[in-house]
Design a protein around this nucleic acid. Structure first.
Lengths: 164, 164
DNA sequence: CAGTATCCTGTCCGATACTG
DNA sequence: CAGTATCGGACAGGATACTG
């Protein structure tokens, strides 16, 4: 994704996609959250070609989502561990999972999220931490932030936001 | 993404990525949420080549995220409107936005989400609708669902899930 | 086991020209 | 205005062979 520039570069979503836009990246992160740390574990789990895995792992390390650590000196062996930035990606993954379960699992969900204590299935929903309100298109909207430029401001003019 | 199969096909995340894995798709959805409905609005906003826009719009329509509606007969004019499936994708977009703002906006966020009523900036956080608990890696984990096959079950064995 | 090195193919994507 | 048609390049991704 070394694209020079593209529509709405300054948008945080676009910037996020620069790091995880390639589709293997997200699946690698998914596996990392399941506890996978080693090269060949990723490879077996994903069925990805080794050279591609190298490329994607390096990209994730460069983006600061994974950390490459030497866990054995002779012979040199590395593990790939989630950084804080990587761990912060989990809500995105869970939101994606919930969406997929709702819309693309006619026979019922194959993977769910459960409460560690009770084992009860969770129903992931996005809320505003400040007010506790559920975030829907009716109650919230996007808006220019403090670092917005003129371009952003025009995009988020209230007149535009027809879809609620 | 007519890939025949890939690692963890039955995973809901992988299935989601089949629909929105290409990176333009997500940016198109982002714009759709901002109220963009017409071809050339998308094109100008995204700076995407027209043939690519056609492909991505068609793919999103086929996946049931957008609906192509004739809003004018002579000459025939279409608009692209979010379906319910498409609107349900918004939490993913907001989670992606929050993640991007936290990690890739050194000069502060350019786009934020605000409460429609109060105008106050929101802090999107994922919680379990059932218990109201914030969903972190410490309190929740993924697990095989009712439709899980043996493959899923082995992947989600507790012993594997080292990363919390 | 944990990768690296090559080679090849598909296709994503951009640029441009064209049409009702 | 809303696309379709065509061309070409870059690169994601696969297959395979090789190495310490």
């Amino acid at each position: 994704m070394q694209r020079k520039s593209f529509g709405g570069m300054s948008c945080p979503i676009a910037r996020s996609l620069e790091r995880v836009g390639e589709w293997w990246s997200i699946l690698i992160l998914r596996d990392a959250f399941l506890g996978v740390t080693q090269f060949d574990q990723f490879q077996k789990s994903l069925g990805i070609a080794p050279n591609m895995l190298t490329r994607r792992l390096n990209a994730l390390v460069e983006s600061g989502l994974l950390e490459r650590r030497l866990y054995q000196a002779h012979p040199p062996r590395h593990e790939y561990a989630l950084t804080e930035r990587g761990r912060d990606f989990r809500p995105v993954l869970w939101a994606l999972l919930a969406w997929g379960n709702k819309h693309f699992a006619p026979e019922g969900p194959s993977v769910i999220v459960v409460d560690r204590e009770t084992g009860q299935p969770a129903d992931p929903v996005l809320v505003d931490r400040v007010t506790g309100k559920e975030m829907t298109a009716d109650t919230f909207r996007s808006a220019p932030g403090p670092a917005a430029d003129e371009y952003q401001r025009t995009r988020h003019s209230p007149s535009q936001e027809v879809v609620r």
